[in-house]
């Protein structure tokens, strides 16, 4: 991954996306080989990695009995900030994700979109160099999804490198400067969305502009049958 990019990690269900994220974020022991994040070995210096990364997993990890502000302050203090620094940082992040008005309400009263935005903010308290987002928009309605996309772009503009897994190819197309497709535990294709589409267009030679969906289906060994206005996936 290059510094400052939004890197997409795509793959069918069960391909190993979430497991990869959990390994890179020190939450699961690496079963084989080695991994480095920001030049730090994940297995030998997990705390070093933790200081450099932010994590927002598939499940929105919030404590329902605390307010949004308390969660951010607690998270910041766990990264070593003083109470005053943590309070100031929480205020700043609540403004960033536009949750200032709801900051002192307990998170159990938040909507799904608000919870996800707070989760993103809590991953940023210590100004990480890399932000890992594991399917950040799964389960959100289309409007909330657009808000999260906007947040991811804003975070990236602040200089944070983003590693994003998603099942939504449109999301990857919108957000990622580069992506990799994993299937059966192996990366089967890597490049920019434009280059991957151009490669497929050249390969098919039919002059039709492929979408990222077509690229995904092509590299994961699936195809599409077209006819009578219907499109269906076949193995």
């Amino acid at each position: 991954m290059a510094q400052g990019e939004v890197f997409g990690f795509l793959g069918p269900n069960g391909a190993g996306k979430s497991t990869t994220v959990r390994m890179l974020t020190t939450l699961t022991t690496i079963s084989g080989g080695s991994a480095q994040v920001v030049g730090i070995d994940v297995a030998s210096d997990p705390d070093g990695v933790r200081r450099k990364i932010g994590v927002a997993l598939q499940e929105v990890g919030l404590d329902p009995r605390q307010s949004g502000r308390e969660i951010l302050i607690l998270q910041a203090r766990l990264f070593g900030l003083s109470h005053a620094e943590a309070t100031a940082r929480a205020r700043e992040l609540l403004e960033l994700v536009e949750l200032t008005d709801s900051a002192d309400r307990r998170t159990k009263t938040y909507s799904g979109g608000m919870k996800r935005r707070l989760d993103l903010a809590s991953a940023l308290v210590h100004r990480p160099e890399v932000l890992f987002l594991d399917e950040p928009t799964t389960g959100l309605d289309p409007a909330s999804r657009l808000v999260v996309w906007e947040e991811v772009r804003r975070i990236n503009q602040l200089g944070v490198t983003v590693f994003l897994t998603t099942q939504y190819l449109e999301e990857a197309d919108q957000l990622c400067s580069r992506l990799a497709i994993i299937d059966g535990g192996t990366i089967v294709r890597e490049g920019t969305p434009a280059s991957l589409k151009a490669d497929l267009k050249a390969k098919r030679g039919d002059g039709i502009e492929p979408t990222l969906d077509d690229v995904f289906l092509d590299v994961t060994g699936r195809g599409r049958e077209r006819g009578a206005g219907e499109v269906r996936e076949v193995q």
Binding site: R50, G61, L62, L78
Partner: peptide, 17 residues
């Protein structure tokens, strides 16, 4: 258990404490 299920425990585990 609730925090393990909703992912908050992982959030705390991902900090360098």
């Amino acid at each position: 258990v609730e925090e393990i299920e909703n992912g908050y425990f992982d959030k705390i585990r991902a900090t360098p404490v």
